[in-house]
């Protein structure tokens, strides 16, 4: 089986912010990489800009990275823990 190339994924979650590295994925080509990145890293959050870059194209120096993650998509109400009616007296949820 052929190994699919590795792509690094960068996402800009809102206008005014810059693209942030969120992770990597495998895909056979750029079009599929972009679509997979959308599915995995943005869960259909709108207004998001995604870059996918072949990992092989990246030239690195010594790592000194800061990382950020962004919240799951806003349109899926049931993704947010606060959506569930859990009685107040239940702790640790």
């Amino acid at each position: 089986m052929n190994a699919e190339p590795l792509w690094e994924v960068f996402v800009r979650s809102r206008r005014g912010l810059s693209h942030i590295h969120v992770g990597s994925l495998h895909a056979p080509d750029a079009e599929m990489a972009l679509r997979n990145a959308r599915d995995v890293y943005t869960r259909r959050q709108e207004g998001v800009s995604i870059w996918v870059v072949p990992a092989a194209s990246i030239t690195a120096s010594s790592p000194d990275e800061k990382d950020s993650f962004f919240d799951p998509a806003g349109d899926k109400v049931y993704r947010h823990p606060t959506f569930y009616d859990i009685p107040d007296e239940v702790r640790h949820l």
Partner: peptide
């Protein structure tokens, strides 16, 4: 796995 994800979406 990518297709499990896409089809679920």
């Amino acid at each position: 796995i990518e297709e499990d994800m896409a089809l679920a979406n």
